[in-house]
Design a protein around this nucleic acid. Structure first.
Lengths: 142, 142
DNA sequence: CTTGCGATTTAGAACCATTACAACTTGATT
DNA sequence: AATCAAGTTGTAATGGTTCTAAATCGCAAG
């Protein structure tokens, strides 16, 4: 049933663009994400896709999610799988995470930018904190 | 040596403001963060403070870090300890994490706000992705 | 076809950051 | 000194994720 949500060709195409194959497992995992867009965890996806492919394993769900992230069809919200890092800088600032070295840098965050960002929240959302995290590379001319 | 960096009175004061006591362990942990501001992990802090208090335990380092976060002297960069969540929404958007229910919501991110945010990056920082995460409560009138 | 081969899936073990627990210590208050 | 709460410690447990090795799949060349 949930398989009616996706266009398997575009999925296959996106996977192929990243050098990956399409598989029934990847289809049902992607379909599970599209059917109920509630930011499920890997475990929750696992629970949902078992009705489509009862033999699927949790490891495969992780593999499929990683494949979907890799071909830019899905975003991982809590990207950082590593340990929590601690920062004593109390001034408002964003973080830049260098994916090559793993280093984290503070990026100054002007208050008018911060207030612009918080202004995107519709009424009813009461934010106590905002985290802005860039990921990418740093170049020599820094 | 690293203990020369902090003003123990202000630390004690901040802790007291949150109903917490000052302890030698909390002092050296905080001092370790101030001395080398490289966003260390709990393990790295543990390694550094052992030269100050050789008997300190990793559990205490976690406790101290949590105390410092609680009294707003330190920020935890990868706050989300829970499982990674997956999101098939490809449009630029921020995330709002409701701390009461654990639910995650997409927040529309106008492209002009996004470009303002990325504009804070100094030259030499090449961001491939930006994550903007709000944390807080949602109210009834949403 | 069919054989070969790399990619994928699977089950289960291993890993690692973090938390829980229970005993012990400390330190402020009476 | 006695009390009591808060903090520390070592260790065990937890839980999300990754690893491993074996089985399977599916395309591609012969």
């Amino acid at each position: 049933m949930s398989s009616s949500v996706i266009n398997p060709e575009s999925l296959a195409q996106k996977l192929a663009d990243s050098g990956l194959r399409n598989t029934p497992q990847r289809e049902v995992v992607y379909s599970a994400l599209l059917t109920k867009r509630d930011h499920p965890t890997a475990d929750e996806v696992y629970a949902r896709v078992r009705s489509d492919i009862s033999s699927i394993s949790l490891a495969t769900v992780y593999n499929c999610l990683e494949a979907l992230v890799q071909c830019h069809l899905v975003r991982a919200v809590n990207f950082e799988r590593g340990p929590t890092r601690y920062c004593p800088n109390l001034a408002p600032h964003a973080h830049f995470h260098d994916e090559a070295t793993g280093a984290t840098f503070d990026i100054d965050l002007p208050s008018e930018i911060l207030s612009k960002v918080t202004s995107i929240l519709p009424p009813g959302y009461d934010a106590e904190a905002v985290d802005i995290i860039f990921r990418g590379k740093t170049t020599g001319t820094r």
